[in-house]
Design a protein around this nucleic acid. Structure first.
Length: 113
DNA sequence: ATGTTGACTTGGA
DNA sequence: GTCCAAGCCAACA
């Protein structure tokens, strides 16, 4: 784990996000122990499509459940479309029932450990 | 080593 | 409820 850079750690956590679930950058950052680096979580996603395997960055949104990173996708509707395909309703670039679909690594992953 | 940047978060008005 | 400002940490030039 220590060998993995902060970016790699973020990638792994995001990859563990179950289908139909979403989480926030702060939740991942907090799980990694660096809550203050919430921005880095999103910034790390810059390589989401350049690394392997691909990271489901569309499942990661800001604390408001708003698709803030959709501008970084191929298309502005790509992120929303992917979420809808997974059963998540998105309206006005914002996830409906965000709290219901929320997936907290600090809790979900901690249970398996 | 220093400075800038950033797909965020939180707190105050 | 909304809007503005500051803080935080890691990677990159």
């Amino acid at each position: 784990m220590d060998r993995a850079s902060f970016y790699e750690q973020v990638y792994q956590v995001v990859r563990l996000i179950p289908k139909g679930r979403v989480t926030s950058y702060g939740a991942i950052a907090s799980y990694l122990g660096t809550k203050g680096s919430s921005r880095m979580v999103g910034y790390a996603m810059n390589g989401a499509g350049t690394i392997s395997p691909k990271v489901p960055a569309h499942r990661v949104v800001n604390r408001n459940g708003l698709l803030t990173g959709k501008f970084h996708f191929s298309s502005l509707t790509a992120m929303q479309d992917l979420l809808e395909k997974e059963g998540i309703k998105v309206s006005d670039d914002k996830i409906s029932d965000f709290k219901t679909h929320f997936w907290d690594p600090a809790i979900e992953l901690d249970l398996e450990r």
